[in-house]
Every structure is written in structure tokens, then in C-alpha cells.
Amino acid sequence: MALKRIAVFTSSVLASCLLGGIAHAENTRVVNTTSEGIFDRPHTIAEIEAGIITLPNAPISSSQRGGETPFGTIGKGDATVLVGLHLLYRASKEFAFGAGFLLGPQPTSDSQYGGAIGLKRSHARSYLLLGTELRYIPIRSKTLEGWLGLTAGGVIIADRFSTETPEKVPAILGTPDVTVRTEGFTIGAELGGSWMFADRWALGAILRTDRWILPNSQQCTAIGDCGTLTGTVSSVQFGLTIGYRIPL
């Protein structure tokens, strides 16, 4: 009877040890899988960006330098708020590629623009960038990464001129606003980093510089309003991002 009790006790202890070992192995496997990080597995990334775009050598007028941002004027060119979206596919640890757009929802305006015929008018200039990007990620850890990138695409610049009249003009006679669009190509470089603060969410920052290649001649309206950017223009952009990552 004593031997039977000892055998039962020993079996219970062995069973407990075996179950404990299996549970420990499972926990270890889960931890190890988590510690690999989503950065190391193929995934897609959707990033929302908000920041500032500056054109250091291109104010919208001689009287409006430094632009309009929540932080005041910046430099001697134009500066305004920038928002955008990036969609990227990361097929390996080192590389990601994708496309996106950036736009200025609150363009800088100049209320003292006189135009060619001396009317009381205002002028604003907005930007839309569409392009592709390639990122190389040489710095990686479980939750942090740093990268370098190249960008290429197109830019659309909209110069909007508005005549300020004290009386409303019937629509049949036309509208007080006219927009002159200038289109061109962009190529640039960028650097940034991301911090994965949750299972699939990451915060990041981007610093980007572009060269805009625009037509050398201006497009003008019948009353002499012309696009304000021609040739080669430099831009610098800084943005903060929040991204959502989807493993594949």
C-alpha cells in the first residue's frame, strides 16, 4: 500500500513537472515570437503625416515672407502646414517601398496683391505632391528603427487670385476667383525613424528635401495673373507620423 501511494505521488509530481515544462515552453515561444518584432516580418504600413513645408527661396510675394504656420513665420520664403498619407509595403527587414501624397490645406495668402490692373485682390499658393518612395532601414531593434529614403513624383502648384469687390457680381458675369496651375516633377531624399509603442502602432518623424523641376515659362490669365514658381525650386519638409502596421 505504501509503495502504491509513493507511486501515485511520484506520478503526480512528474505530471505536474511535465505540464509546467510545457506551459513554460509555450510562454517562451510566445515571448520569443513577440521579441522578433513586427519590423522583421513582411507587412504593410499606413502612415498619416502632419508637419510643415518650407520653400526657402520662394515667398509668395515680396511683402509676404516666412509664410503662415501655427509657429509663426519660418525663414524668408513660403512656409505652411502640410498633411499627407503614405502606404508602404515592407517585404524584408531592410527595405520598404510605396507611394503617397502630401498637400497644404491652409496656404499662405497675401491680401495686398494688386495684380496687373490695380484691383484690390488677394493671392494664395497651395501645393499637392504625389509620388513614390523607397526606404532603406539600416537601424533596427525590437521597437525602434531608423531609415534613409529616396522620393520621386509630381507636384501641382495652385496660385489662386481673388478680386475683393464690395458688391456681389451675378454669376453670369463670372466669378471673382481664378486659379493658375503649374505642374512639374520632384526628386528628393529623406530620413526618419519610428517607435513602435503598441502591438501595431508606431510614432515617427520625417525630414525631407525635394527639388521641384517646373516649366521655365509662366502660365498667365487674360488679366495678367501668372504662376509664381518656375524653373527649379527647393523645398524642405518636416513631419510627424502615426502608422498602423498589418502583418502579412
Rank of each mutant, 00 (worst) to 15 (best):
G184E: 07
T186V: 05
G188Q: 05
G188I: 12
A189W: 15
E190I: 02
L191T: 14
L191V: 13
G192I: 13
S194L: 07
S194H: 11
S194P: 11
W195D: 00
W195F: 13
W195L: 08
M196I: 12
M196P: 09
M196T: 15
F197S: 03
F197W: 11
F197K: 01
F197G: 02
A198P: 00
D199I: 04
D199G: 02
D199R: 05
R200D: 15
R200A: 05
R200N: 11
W201A: 13
W201Y: 07
W201G: 09
W201Q: 12
A202V: 06
A202K: 06
L203I: 12
L203W: 04
L203R: 06
G204F: 11
A205T: 12
I206A: 02
R208K: 10
T209N: 08
T209M: 13
T209L: 06
D210K: 12
W212F: 04
W212Q: 06
I213R: 02
L214F: 04
L214H: 04
L214Q: 07
P215F: 02
N216V: 08
N216E: 10
S217M: 09
S217T: 15
Q219K: 10
Q219L: 03
C220K: 09
C220L: 02
C220W: 06
C220N: 02
T221L: 08
A222G: 01
A222F: 10
I223A: 14
I223N: 09
I223E: 12
G224F: 00
G224Y: 00
D225Y: 00
C226K: 03
C226Q: 06
C226P: 05
G227Y: 01
T228K: 11
T228H: 03
T228E: 12
T228N: 13
T228A: 08
T228P: 02
L229P: 00
L229S: 03
T230R: 07
T230G: 05
G231R: 03
G231I: 02
G231F: 02
T232I: 14
T232E: 11
V233R: 11
S234I: 09
S234C: 01
S234R: 03
S235Q: 12
S235G: 03
S235P: 09
V236W: 10
Q237E: 15
Q237D: 06
G239L: 04
L240T: 08
L240S: 03
T241A: 07
T241F: 05
T241N: 09
I242T: 07
I242W: 06
G243P: 00
Y244I: 10
Y244N: 11
R245A: 05
R245E: 08
I246W: 11
P247Q: 00
P247F: 01
P247W: 00
